[in-house]
């Protein structure tokens, strides 16, 4: 089943064309990885999937992005879109409030105020993010006091708490140590049963380890999009081969 269908997407930052004629179909309940050198447009494409690029001045879009058949650049409620398409950022960005309030922020935003329900959501979300056992005794403590790896898993829990369908992850482990990274990779693999996950990564081994499909970007274009196995063992394009064998990038 296809979740996102991107057709002929062009994206401009002012006069600079950051994405050129992108065509991609992203399958539900799979992990799709975006790889490519810095500045190739992979994060830009990720951000255009929940319209976070609306926040960037001078950003303009041509083409179509369909989420379950609905054009997300049409006349839609952006807040509702972002509830369905959650996001985890490159640097862990917990809010300066308690761990509990961090996770409860999303549900409260969407109108849940009953204490019993919130308690339940906070616990399930933290459990799903595999961090409940570490944090259950300090839910009322500030989220800024936990380690970077824990903060990132907290941010994943926070994103899960609004019950999204898709999780966008923008290099979620690039600021973390190897142990935290492997914990988060395990978590991502577990989450794919319930969510569609799109992950931008600089780390090709990471793409191999966790993703089902991989798109390789270069200078704003999708050069190749295939199953991860094919991309890494049997690339069809020369640029892809050069990149994955480390000849540039």
């Amino acid at each position: 089943m296809e979740k996102f269908k991107i057709t002929d997407l062009d994206l401009y930052y002012g006069t600079f064309k950051a994405l050129i004629k992108v065509n991609l179909t992203i399958e539900a309940n799979q992990i799709t990885a975006f790889i490519g050198p810095s500045g190739c447009g992979k994060s830009t494409l990720l951000k255009s999937l929940n319209r976070m690029n609306d926040l960037i001045e001078g950003c303009r879009i041509d083409g179509n992005v369909l989420l379950d058949g609905e054009d997300i650049y049409g006349n839609i409620d952006v807040n509702l879109l972002r509830k369905r398409v959650g996001m985890v950022f490159q640097k862990p960005n917990p809010f300066p409030m308690s761990i509990y309030d961090n996770v409860a922020y999303g549900p409260r935003t969407h109108g849940i105020h009953s204490k019993i329900k919130l308690d339940e959501i906070v616990e399930t979300s933290l459990r799903n993010a595999a961090i409940w056992d570490e944090l259950k005794d300090r839910l009322k403590k500030s989220a800024l006091g936990i380690s970077g790896g824990q903060q990132q898993r907290l941010c994943i829990a926070r994103a899960l708490a609004v019950q999204p369908e898709v999780l966008l992850m923008d290099e979620p482990t690039s600021a973390l140590d190897p142990i935290s990274t492997s914990k988060i990779e395990d978590l991502i693999s577990e989450l794919k049963e319930r969510y569609t996950i799109i992950i931008v990564t600089h780390n090709m081994q990471q793409a191999v380890r966790i993703s089902d499909k991989t798109a390789f970007f270069l200078l704003g274009q999708v050069i190749e999009y295939d199953t991860t196995e094919n991309i890494f063992s049997n690339p069809r394009q020369k640029e892809t081969e050069d990149y994955i064998t480390g000849r540039f990038g």
């Binding site: 926040l55 972002r82 509830k83 996001m87 950022f89 960005n93 809010f95 935003t109």
Partner: peptide, 20 residues
């Protein structure tokens, strides 16, 4: 990053400004 985090959860401008 606080603002992004809040928008990313589907919070509107008003809520982001006044609660975060």
């Amino acid at each position: 990053s606080y603002r992004e985090g809040s928008y990313g959860l589907g919070a509107g401008k008003m809520r982001t400004v006044f609660t975060i």
